[in-house]
């Protein structure tokens, strides 16, 4: 095992997994919140857009989305997201499209987690907010969403745990994260299959276990008492 750690940059690969997770997670949180606002808005066009996005993206395999981003958009249409003159442009492009696909995919789940949180809020909360003269946006920002986020912490935790593990799908477009390195190490060291898999599994547990425990603790601490 020490031999493997010395010969391969396993830590670096996990670092890439973390980088993907942070970038895609942030994107998913912002986009997912926006989608949730769309789905709750009184404007029919926005509502239709929100539900179409969620239903389309949530029901498509992530592998398809990721490969579509790389082959369909990057390779065939030449939609570059990275600076072409940079020596790392190929890797950068793959990373950015991968993050976009993973974040966009996870956003659909974030949206639904938030919406389930919104549904726990009694309708009287929004009525009271409107009664003191808050606009639709202020009602969402000051009263509905803060309570929805608190009620959504536990389901959001599960969503982000799933996302971190889903980041391994980016190996299919050659992003040098841990699953990508794993298949290379297995190719070159077939006799150490169990060790390699154990290291990868342990790495993910280290990444996701605190997240799940943190989410549970936070959701208890921040729970809105009624």
């Amino acid at each position: 095992m020490g031999d493997l750690l010395a010969r391969y940059d396993i830590l670096g690969a996990f670092l890439m997994t973390i980088k993907i997770s942070l970038a895609a997670g942030l994107l998913a949180l912002v986009l997912g919140t926006l989608l949730a606002v769309f789905r709750l808005s009184p404007v029919p066009v926005l509502r239709a857009f929100g539900s179409t996005y969620v239903n389309l993206v949530r029901n498509t395999p992530l592998t398809l989305l990721v490969t579509f981003a790389q082959f369909g958009l990057l390779s065939l249409l030449n939609w570059h997201l990275a600076n072409q003159s940079s020596p790392t442009s190929v890797a950068d492009d793959n990373f950015r499209w991968g993050v976009l696909a993973l974040g966009g995919y996870t956003a659909a789940f974030v949206c639904e987690a938030l919406r389930s949180g919104v549904n726990t809020i009694p309708v009287g909360q929004a009525e009271a907010a409107r009664s003191i003269g808050l606009t639709f946006t202020q009602t969402l920002r000051e009263v509905v969403l803060p309570q929805a986020f608190r009620a959504s912490i536990a389901p959001l935790g599960s969503t982000f745990i799933a996302m971190i593990k889903n980041s391994t799908v980016l190996s299919v477009i050659g992003v040098a994260e841990i699953a990508f390195l794993q298949s290379r190490i297995i190719d070159e060291n077939a006799d150490q299959l169990y060790t390699i898999m154990a290291i990868v599994a342990l790495g993910f547990v280290i990444l996701t276990l605190p997240l799940g425990m943190g989410a549970t603790a936070l959701s208890k601490r921040l729970a809105v008492k009624r």
């Binding site: 009525e127 000051e142 309570q147």
Partner: peptide
């Protein structure tokens, strides 16, 4: 919204902002 700010409303179930 502006008009509502001039009309106070007290509900049966209080509806204080819980957070």
């Amino acid at each position: 919204a502006r008009l509502r700010s001039d009309v106070g409303m007290v509900f049966q179930s209080f509806n204080l902002f819980a957070h």
